[in-house]
Structure formats: C-alpha cells, structure tokens
C-alpha cells in the first residue's frame, strides 16, 4: 500500500510537469494548428533561466522567512522572460510562414527546437547540471499516507496555474479573443480582434507555463540537462493529444494520466523504466489511430 501511494504521488508530480508543458502545445495547436516542436526546449530553457536567476540573486542562501516571496518572484520573473522568448520565436520564425504550405512552419519548428537545444549544448555542454531545491523538503501525514511536502507543493502550484489559465481563457477579454481566433481566424479578424497580438499572447502564456514546469522539474529532480526537453516534450505532446488537442482541461488531465502511466510502468515492472517511453509513444499512436480527438477533444478539422 505504501509503495502504491508513493508511486501515485510520484506519478502526479511527474504528471503536473507534463501537464504544464502540454498546455503550451494545446494552446498553440488550438490557435494556429502548428505542432510547436520547439516547445519542449522552451521548457528546458525556462529551467535554465530559473537556475541562472537563482545563481544571480543567491536564492539558495536566503533566510527561510524570505524564501516564500523569493520563490514566487522567481517563478514570476522566469515565466515572464521565457514568455517573451516564446513571443520572439513566434514573431521571428512562425509568423512569416503563416500562409506558407503546412510543411514550412513544421520544418521551421524542428529547426527552432535544434537552435534552442544547440545554444544550451554550446553553453552548458552535455552534462547534467545540478539544481537546488528551494521548496521545503520533509514529509507530512503518516503510515502509508506519508507524502513529501515538495510533491504536494508542486502539485498545488500546477493546479493553481491550470485553474488560473482556465479562468483567464473563460472570463477575460483576451481569453475570449483567443477562443474566437482558435475557432475561426478570419471571422475573429472581422470582429475587430487583433490576430497577431492574440497569437503572441498565446505563445507568451504557453511558454510561461512551460518555464514553470522547467523550474519545478529542476527543483524536484535537482538536475537539468540540455536535451531533456525533447523527451519531455514528446510525452507532453502525447498528453495533449490524449486529452484532446486544443482543449485546456484535456491537456491538464492528459498530463496527469501520462505521468501516472509512466510512473506505474517504471515502478511495477522491473526493467520497465527502459520501456516506459516506448509505452507512451505507443499510447500516442494508438490514440491518434483510434480516437484522434482524444478524451475530451471536440474539434479536429480535417485538412
């Protein structure tokens, strides 16, 4: 029982990270129907930017009283910087190709992914970089239901961001503009929505959420490596497709499901860790074949 609870908590923690990345895929796909291959690497870059800020402001040595506002500021700053990186990528690489044949932006996205990975590889090399955990460690609860505080905080952060995003999309003017643009870009433009600005905001939000995922990943695994975004990105994309691409709640749900599947495969099947990614990719292919709209998906236009 204890093992099961441990695995469950671990799975939800991993799932929180994948869900945060998956939201970026699903938002961008929903609005411009582009698989943003660079998104997984934006996640890594976010983690590295967070690490750099921790280093500059020496947050590791901060007194515990100041730590809570410091971590909140760290998230805010990293998410903002990475958000603008996403906006820059969209502006420079994707916007000029918006009316090009579909192959062009896809190839460009692969290229941007390699540019980001290449810069990280050049600057940081291929080794694991150690990452401090600024979240409190220790455990709460007792017996079989002993849960790591770090895990709990990570899951809460992710849930807060997800609920916040959902409210933002449903309730604000910009959120409504995003939904309208996703539904019908031309009609949205006729209604006076600034399409370019709306798409830029979408990239900002998606990249910011991935950055939050990057910091959380760093905190939890206490290391980061230049190409982790590739696999994490694929898992997160699988989560987005599984939940129904274009659907925010679906992506969150899919992220947690993929996290749980990965963890349970690795935990209950000796040698399963090696096969975990094979299992996830199989889920991706099976979902696409048998239920391309995903669990909660509604609208996937055939093109």
């Amino acid at each position: 029982m204890k093992f099961f609870v441990d695995q469950l908590v671990l799975g939800l923690t991993n799932g929180a990270i994948y869900a945060l990345i998956a939201l970026g895929y699903t938002l961008v796909y929903g609005i411009i129907e582009l698989i943003n291959f660079a998104h997984g690497d934006v996640f890594t870059v976010g983690g590295i930017i967070g690490l750099t800020l921790i280093g500059i402001f020496r947050l590791e040595h901060l007194s515990p009283a100041l730590l809570v506002p410091a971590v909140i500021l760290l998230f805010a700053a990293t998410m903002t910087i990475t958000g603008f990186l996403g906006v820059a990528i969209e502006r420079l690489a994707y916007r000029p190709l918006r009316n090009a044949p579909r192959l062009a932006p896809l190839i460009t996205a692969v290229g941007v992914s390699f540019v980001l990975e290449g810069i990280l590889f050049m600057v940081k090399g291929a080794n694991q970089i150690s990452y401090p955990n600024l979240l409190p460690s220790g455990k709460i609860g007792g017996g079989a239901f002993e849960i790591g505080i770090t895990n709990l905080i990570i899951i809460i952060i992710a849930l807060v961001l997800m609920v916040g995003l959902h409210q933002f999309i449903q309730r604000t003017r910009i959120g409504r503009a995003m939904r309208a643009t996703a539904q019908d870009r031309d009609a949205a433009r006729l209604m006076g929505i600034d399409i370019n600005r709306t798409i830029a905001i979408t990239f900002f939000i998606g990249s910011a959420l991935a950055a939050a995922g990057g910091i959380i990943f760093g905190f939890y695994y206490q290391s980061i490596v230049f190409d982790q975004g590739f696999e994490a990105g694929l898992f997160a994309f699988t989560a987005a497709v599984f939940g129904g691409i274009g659907n925010v709640i679906g992506a969150s749900l899919g992220g947690f499901v993929i996290g749980l599947i990965l963890t349970f495969v690795a935990g209950y099947w000796s040698g399963g860790l090696q096969w975990a990614s094979v299992v996830v990719f199989s889920i991706l292919i099976l979902t696409l074949v048998f239920r391309p709209t995903g669990l909660l998906g509604m609208r996937v236009a055939e093109r």
Binding site: A93, P96, L97, A100, A104, P105, I107, T108, V110, G111, V112, S113, F114, V115, L116, E117, G118, I119, F121, M122, G125, A126
Partner: peptide, 17 residues
Amino acid sequence: QRSNYLIFGLILVFTML
C-alpha cells in the same frame, strides 16, 4: 565542437524563411 545542433537548426530555420 558543440555547435552541430545549432548549425542544423539555423540551416532549417533560415532556409525556410
């Protein structure tokens, strides 16, 4: 020596653009 990823990425992006 570590620039191969970057070179490939730049070639893809700039060729498409």
